[in-house]
């Protein structure tokens, strides 16, 4: 309480050195002391595999035939970019990403608002809504797979009843591209909307309730309050939620793998890379696909950070 007097002399001394004050230097040191361990450990567990993947992508290298390993530089990449299978996988991945993230943002925000405001089954709602996120993606995929499959599923029966028999009760959801993609996306949305809601709810909860109250007193409608008060104040939370979900959706794997294994042109970039790496043990080609996937993801991230000004570093 009384140590305030210590500060002015320090400031005066700093004026002679325009570059860095003691305080700024101490802040730098503290910054790296706090951030360093996390950063170093993160690098240690990933730098090696990442660099190795880049390196391996320059080789024709099959695990079953390691002796014929050969440096071919960018040949794997030229094969990828001339293969229609790659473009199908790319299109599927983009399609799934755009649809699921758009649906999840709206749905997730609505659920977050509901969770934020609800009075009565408040705790029950919050608990129930969060459950899908905590459920293993593979389990979600099986749940929806078994729901829609003709041998075990109930969905066709329900649709048949709802349409008074107009819906074909033996409709094969996994027999063609669009329905299969639809089921994949339903599982993805079901499983990951809570993640969106959780982040958005956290953003909502950080908003000063008095601001919204003031807008309300001044006669702002619900939509005005939403767009002028609530959303601008939780921009950071929204952008992070969308960024994370976009990048996560872009590497969709589990749902596709469990449901279709890429049948009927439902292959995504990750399942394509998996097939090359694990099924065909084409380590070089699999690594090249992984690098391409990573670069695409990296580009999306850059667009978000530069284009939409998602600035986690908090510099003003």
């Amino acid at each position: 309480m009384s140590t305030v007097t210590d500060t002015p002399p320090t400031r005066r001394r700093d004026q002679h050195r325009p570059k860095l004050s003691d305080r700024a230097r101490a802040e730098r040191a503290l910054g790296w002391k706090l951030a360093g361990p996390a950063f170093v450990i993160m690098l240690a567990v990933t730098a090696y595999p990442i660099l190795q993947a880049v390196w391996l992508s320059f080789f024709r290298y099959r695990l079953t035939d390691p002796d014929s390993r050969e440096f071919i530089f960018l040949s794997n990449y030229s094969v990828i970019f001339t293969d229609p299978l790659f473009y199908q996988a790319l299109w599927n991945t983009v399609f799934i990403t755009v649809v699921t993230v758009a649906v999840e943002l709206v749905l997730g925000f609505a659920i977050a608002m509901l969770m934020h405001r609800i009075v009565l089954p408040r705790r029950t709602l919050r608990t129930i809504v969060l459950i899908p996120y905590s459920i293993i993606t593979v389990v979600s995929a099986f749940a929806w797979l078994y729901s829609f499959r003709t041998d075990t599923g109930y969905v066709n029966g329900w649709l048949n009843t709802l349409t008074f028999g107009a819906w074909d009760a033996s409709f094969d959801w996994f027999g063609s591209w669009l329905p299969a993609m639809g089921v994949i996306m339903i599982s993805e949305i079901w499983k990951t909307t809570p993640f969106m809601s959780l982040l958005l709810l956290a953003g909502l909860a950080q908003i000063d309730g008095a601001m919204e109250e003031a807008a309300k007193v001044d006669g702002a409608t619900f939509w005005q309050r939403l767009f002028k008060v609530v959303l601008p104040n939780m921009k950071a939370a929204i952008m992070v939620a969308v960024l994370f979900r976009t990048l996560d959706a872009f590497r969709i794997f589990d749902n596709v793998f469990v449901m279709t294994r890429g049948a009927n042109n439902t292959e995504t970039l990750s399942t394509l890379a998996y097939k090359q790496t694990i099924d065909r043990v084409e380590i070089g080609m699999g690594s090249a696909l992984s690098v391409v996937l990573f670069l695409l993801v990296f580009a999306i991230a850059l667009i978000f950070i530069r284009g939409f000004k998602v600035d986690l570093a908090g510099s003003k």
């Binding site: 993160m42 690098l43 990933t46 090696y48 595999p49 990442i50 190795q52 993947a53 391996l56 990048l247 996560d248 872009f250 590497r251 794997f253 990750s270 890379a273 998996y274 790496t277 694990i278 380590i283 699999g286 690594s287 992984s290 690098v291 996937l293 990573f294 993801v297 990296f298 991230a301």
Partner: peptide
């Protein structure tokens, strides 16, 4: 970010 979204499959092989 790069680490977080590097495809898991390609971390696995090495």
């Amino acid at each position: 970010l790069a680490v977080s979204f590097f495809p898991v499959i390609s971390l696995v092989t090495p």
